[in-house]
Design a protein around this nucleic acid. Structure first.
Length: 215
DNA sequence: ATCCCGAGGG
DNA sequence: CCCTCTGGAT
């Protein structure tokens, strides 16, 4: 099903305006290579990027390659990443993920959705983050809590399931802008349009918002 | 649908 | 207290 011209146009306007409002929009996780981004993104589940960036400096010193993550004791890893929440599950995922990197991928981070998605702790969202930001090989749009919420508020989709939101977005957004699009929506979601108390009075894209503006 | 789990805001 | 923060696995 091809999207309506009206929706396509609104999407273009949203992108255009957000580019002006957030010219610096980028991935807020601190990382220096694909492995560091993969680990940071696993840690970012249900947690702010600011908090992830608080624990990764020590983690990246302790673990410099996939083998280091595969062999670090569970408890030692838990202590380092504790404040990011879900620390037992995240530590298990990271160790299992790294073990697979060593045994199946020569210790390197794979560059396809299929391979990334098979790693422990790596869902579509995490895989899309790594593909788009570390490799510039986006196979889809990152749909996190912000992208899902803003896409619905802006009337780009009515879907709730992140996978369905993504399939709607890839039809609306030019492929070249998939990665930037997520960064723009996340930046706006944080600054102006959080889940709880959106600051509509100062919103840069209020006129494009079907609930408030555009009427 | 439920669990994993910490930290901060309102 | 309840909700939210760049989710994923069972």
């Amino acid at each position: 099903m091809t999207p309506s011209p009206v929706l396509l146009r609104r999407t273009q306007q949203v992108i255009q305006q957000l580019k002006r409002s957030y010219p610096e929009a980028h991935c807020e996780l601190d990382y220096a290579n694909p492995l560091q981004l993969l680990i940071a993104t696993i840690l970012s589940a249900q947690c702010t990027d600011v908090r992830v960036n608080l624990v990764t400096p020590a983690l990246f010193i302790r673990c410099r390659n996939a083998n280091d993550y595969a062999t670090i004791p569970q408890t030692e890893l838990e202590v380092i990443i504790r404040s990011t929440g879900f620390y037992r599950a995240k530590a298990r995922s990271i160790r299992a993920c790294a073990t697979a990197l060593v045994s199946d991928h020569q210790g390197e981070v794979p560059q396809t959705m299929k391979e990334l998605h098979q790693l422990a702790g790596v869902g579509r969202k995490t895989a899309n983050v790594v593909l788009g930001n570390a490799f510039n090989l986006a196979e889809g749009v990152v749909v996190d809590t912000h992208v899902g919420r803003l896409s619905r508020r802006m009337g780009l989709t009515r879907q709730v399931d992140p996978v369905k939101v993504e399939s709607a977005l890839v039809k609306l957004v030019p492929k070249k802008e998939w990665t930037l699009f997520s960064h723009l929506l996340i930046a706006h979601g944080r600054k102006r349009c959080p889940a709880r108390k959106p600051d509509c009075a100062n919103c840069e894209i209020l006129k494009l918002c079907p609930r408030i503006g555009a009427r």
